[in-house]
Design a protein around this nucleic acid. Structure first.
Lengths: 196, 196
DNA sequence: AAAAACGCTTAAGGTAGTTTAATTTTTTAC
DNA sequence: GTAAAAAATTAAACTACCTTAAGCGTTTTT
């Protein structure tokens, strides 16, 4: 149960200020548009074929964002966690059914904003829009890196890369979950770690 | 040789206005920050280890953006063409050496903007910054789709997808180039099209 | 016009990762 | 604390795609 809201607000403000300058007044305008949401381990933040109505800043917790393909295999896009964002951006922006599902791997606490509130904020606060421009650029750069690494690296070096990039996630996820992020079967993953 | 500059300006303005509203005055401010550049077939827009100093709007032409991995294999990120943008965004924004190379597949004509000019424009024109927020979001969505398709589809269905998405590129690229985009060898590509 | 470079094809042998299925170990739920 | 469910392991057969290598046609360079 959230006890001290202002602590979360401070954390969120720091997150924004790592990217853009925000004065007290502007932050007040921004934070008013967000609402807090708790979500328990194993609960869904977004089910397949739902429209994603919120972008959510993660105060605490861990999620898994997956896509189920035509053969029923599950592929993991990523594991959003503390001090980052979670949502299906395509579904959010186009207001169309999502082909992704998002669920909580650990109990989580979120700050959520709706699309209409976000677009209103963009109109009154250029700093807020700049923040999301830079976030989108960062997301595109990270995805490009990952795509190219998928072309050029085998499963073993992708695993090393993952462990190096997200050392804290190692103990919070099962082998099966990491395998699904790397794009290999749990059986092959098991063989791979044994061999090492 | 560019003969009628205003035609290109009109094309570029239409491109911007598909996303944001721009009045005459704002467009004048924007277009002043761009310079025109010609580049011939086979010439490099960006060589490996260079810093990418410009983002370029493509008036006409076709490029290939590739990455050379540690084993010397070439992987194609994409084929930027008319009415789109070309550059290595990561190198551009961080002003660091690029691990990509970009060269013209066909003679091309560009409108180029430097980083300092772009950042100045962001400060004086929120519409221009909004345009790039939306561009970055689109890029991230497209890369996410492509990444997930790489996990779930084999080479044959990735080829069908490519042909469906870029029907006009089929005749402008060699099999070898398309193979490098799909992430397979030219030899396997050849077998694949024969089998079909 | 000749030489060189490049792109496409074909084929044989090889490998990274999959599939299936059975067994064991760990985690979850009441 | 125990039953049930899920995760991890192991192994054998299989497949999508790679590597190498050689030959041929076309384009580019000189």
């Amino acid at each position: 149960m959230p006890q001290n809201t202002s602590t979360y607000h401070q954390q969120f403000r720091k997150h924004l200020e790592r990217v853009v300058l925000i004065d007290d007044e502007a932050f007040e305008e921004i934070i008013q548009c967000f609402s807090i949401k708790e979500i328990s381990k194993k609960d869904y933040l977004l089910r397949p074929f739902q429209v994603c109505r919120y972008e959510s800043y993660i105060i605490k917790g861990l999620f898994q964002t997956t896509m189920i393909d035509d053969e029923g295999r599950q592929h993991t896009l990523h594991f959003p966690h503390e001090d980052w964002w979670v949502g299906d951006f395509k579904s959010f922006r186009k207001e169309q059914e999502s082909n992704m599902e998002i669920f909580a791997v650990e109990d989580a606490l979120l700050l959520q904003i709706s699309k209409s509130a976000m677009y209103q904020l963009f109109d009154i606060s250029p700093a807020f829009e700049r923040f999301f421009r830079i976030m989108a650029e960062n997301a595109a750069m990270a995805l490009q890196d990952r795509l190219l690494k998928n072309y050029s690296h085998n499963a073993e070096s992708k695993l090393l890369e993952f462990q190096k990039k997200y050392p804290s996630l190692k103990n919070r996820l099962s082998q099966k979950q990491i395998a699904s992020y790397l794009g290999v079967t749990p059986e092959y993953f098991s063989q791979m770690v044994k061999k090492k």
